[in-house]
């Protein structure tokens, strides 16, 4: 019994010191940040949001840009809704990753929250959208694809993941619209993940797939699929043969961006702090290497640019969601 008591008291001590060290790591003064930071990834481990949050934590802490310890917290559910609802109630020591879903959830009537309920801090990265077809497809270019869909919108089956109203879906709608396709009649097969879309395409179970470039690139390089168009401004590194939508007469640049935001009502100083730190982060080699590994591109915008950008994006998406037939 004595041994047990000693063991217990040691355990208690250990726990107490652990608690103590956690709460005393801040500077104690008035300066922000005054304690450990929390980083909400509004999704489970394994996706783009989680990867972005963990990459940021790694670079900010490893490169000593931010001295305070950053903890990544996963709050999955409702396409970001759960995590962002949580963020809304926190103090400025909690930040969260976001993407266009912070706009479209609201436009699709799935959420009350929109970017105006938070403090936008930055846009960090983007991926681009690609339209891919099986290698043996009779369709040879984007124009032929769209012409066929204009004649009969149900003649081709289009794979998308993981839900209608996301960037993969809406970028395709946007392009199809300019060719005069009746986009409300298109047959989309919704798959659970990008991987499922790729296997459906490889197996010939769908005729077309719309997905992010990174998901299609490896298959293209191995000569398993063809890519008809990418949604970037200029042709992409490693995919120099693939024309952009712009070159093919569609005036569209469609980024699939990811950014960072904080809870509502952050002060000027707090915003300035992150403008400085995040800019520094995007300039490190470690960050650039992570972008390269993940096939992300830098798309950095500081807080004021981000605000403006989000406003434009909201108008764009609002229009697009209506055209797609997903909302009135």
């Amino acid at each position: 019994m004595k041994k047990l008591l000693i063991f217990l008291s040691i355990l208690t001590l250990m726990a107490l010191t652990a608690c103590g060290s956690q709460s005393s790591s801040g500077d104690g003064g008035e300066s922000y940040p005054s304690k450990d930071l929390e980083f909400v990834a509004p999704a489970s481990p394994g996706g783009g949001w989680d990867a972005t949050a963990r990459a940021m934590k790694k670079v900010l802490n490893d490169e000593k840009i931010v001295e305070e310890n950053m903890n990544v917290v996963n709050k999955p559910g409702g396409s970001g809704e759960v995590g962002w609802k949580y963020l809304k109630k926190q103090d400025p020591h909690t930040l969260s990753v976001n993407s266009s879903l912070v706009l479209t959830n609201n436009l699709l009537g799935k959420s009350q929250l929109t970017y105006k309920d938070f403090t936008p801090l930055a846009i960090l990265t983007t991926e681009w959208e690609a339209v891919a077809i099986p290698k043996d497809s009779s369709i040879k270019n984007a124009e032929a694809l769209m012409k066929q869909l204009k004649k009969d919108p149900k003649s081709l089956k289009i794979a998308v993941a993981p839900g209608l109203g996301n960037d993969d879906h809406l970028s395709f709608v946007q392009a199809a619209k300019t060719y005069g396709v009746d986009v409300t009649k298109l047959d989309f097969l919704v798959y659970e993940s990008g991987g499922d879309v790729v296997s459906a395409l490889l197996g010939g179970h769908v005729d077309v797939a719309t997905m992010s470039v990174s998901e299609a690139k490896q298959q293209y390089k191995a000569d398993k699929v063809d890519i008809l168009a990418v949604s970037s401004e200029e042709r992409l590194d490693g995919l120099e043969d693939i024309p952009t939508w712009k070159e093919q007469g569609v005036d569209m640049v469609f980024p699939h961006w990811r950014g960072v935001m904080g809870p509502p009502d952050m002060t000027e100083e707090e915003i300035a702090y992150w403008d400085e730190k995040l800019k520094k982060m995007t300039e490190t080699d470690a960050w650039k290497k992570i972008l390269k590994n993940n096939e992300w591109q830098s798309f950095y915008k500081d807080s004021s640019e981000t605000k403006k950008f989000l406003k434009e994006q909201e108008e764009m998406y609002s229009d697009l969601v209506k055209k797609s037939g997903l909302a009135e």
Binding site: G47, G195, D196, S199, Q219, N293
Partner: peptide, 23 residues
């Protein structure tokens, strides 16, 4: 192509390490 939840998590991790899984 990750065939299960576990392999999806593994895929994310090896991408972070700079390996491009694919054909």
């Amino acid at each position: 192509i990750p065939g299960s939840g576990t392999t999806a998590v593994m895929l994310g991790a090896i991408i972070m390490l700079g390996v491009q899984p694919g054909p």
